[in-house]
Amino acid sequence: MPSQTFESYYQSIRQRQKRESLLWSIGILIVYFYSGYLSEFSLSVVWQGIPHFFDYLSDILPTLHLPVLFADGHTKGSFAYWGYRLNIQIPLLGQTIAIAIAATLFSSLMATFASFPASNNTQIHWSLRYSLRSIAAFCRTMPELAWAVMFVMAFGVGPIPGFFALFLHSFGCQTKLFYETVEVASDKPVRGLRALGASRLMRMRYGLWPQVAPTFMSYTFMRLETNFRQSTILGLVGGGGIGQELMTSIKLDHYDQVSIVLIQIILVVSLLDFISGKLRHRLLKEMSV
């Protein structure tokens, strides 16, 4: 015998849901406005700033004149004039890509080794597990520019400090993603291997690794894109790559050079995105580990 009608049941559930969404909305609004206050986010300044922003965007557009588009580098308004520093920029861009690849591969490798002892289903002593997790948390929370400043102070200006900075930062990020992946892997293969006398290392290698390897690979490709983006700013503090060029162009108001560098960065990011998407799909299907 129901103690209430369906109508009142429906109303009570509905009211609770409404009350909760109201509370959440108010809470989020308060956080939002307080954040706006803290970060000096005022609509009037934004309103005044937006024209500046668009001015800036129009400033960085290159001046191109149709009749002389393909003239040599001394004619104002030609492609060659716009890209007169490409011979310097392209190698720097290559260096940025090289740093990103080197840091991504190495950090994924190290994170793979760190993630198995760091996850809670590999029967590793808790002290090792928690120290690995803390090191990873420290590495990823310290901003990559802070790492870069540190390594530049130690080793001098160049791509190697940039590589180390990016490596440490992405090692931290990758380790977390990796051990979370290991933790949700199925226990069944591990049980089978345990029963046939496989050592702990082999249980990880054959019980867990085949399950997690495709996911690790996916994360590595995604990281490559992120690392490329981040390595474009390493140059700001002397960590090598295109960042130095970009910062000088912005600071010294070489407007047309800002746009050409940004275009190169965007092109590479889109390219990496495209390639990694294709490769990821193929590897997920075909990879044997």
Binding site: I50, F53, L236
Partner: peptide
């Protein structure tokens, strides 16, 4: 495609130094 710090530098030109550029 463009890193946060670079957007930051660009917005510093538009709205001046300070947290607003970061936002």
């Amino acid at each position: 495609g463009i890193d946060m710090a670079i957007w930051g530098m660009i917005f510093i030109r538009a709205v001046g130094m300070g947290p607003l550029a970061g936002v």
